[in-house]
Amino acid sequence: MINRFSCAALVVLSLTGCASDPAPTEQLRLSEQALAQAKAVGADEQVAELAMAEAKLLQAQAAMQRDAFKDARVLAEQAELDARLAEARVLTQKSQDQLDELNNRINRLRKQLGTL
């Protein structure tokens, strides 16, 4: 009898599970912020991680709507880091472009100096 009850309890527990998670409002705010920040430095759909961040944030918001708070938190956490990686990639690419441009200029200067 006890066995039967504990089994039923386990089933119920595993079915409800995540319902006890609190609403990840703060995490969603952080994720939105990270996404906005990535876009502000010039990340667009070309950056794979930005597209992922946007998709996951949308899913997280949808999960919030149906009170699936654990799903919402997981998706929002991943979206935040996807967005941060997108931002870092864009900034790194920009710094690389800047280096290339500087090297070009230096080569041109050297060439001019050589011909004098």
């Binding site: 991943q78 880091l81 996807d82 941060r84 990686l85 870092a88 990639r89 790194t92």
Partner: peptide, 13 residues
């Protein structure tokens, strides 16, 4: 994995 990737990008930057 993402944190590692972000760290690496920031280091290159």
């Amino acid at each position: 994995l993402r944190y590692s990737e972000i760290a690496e990008q920031n280091s290159v930057l």
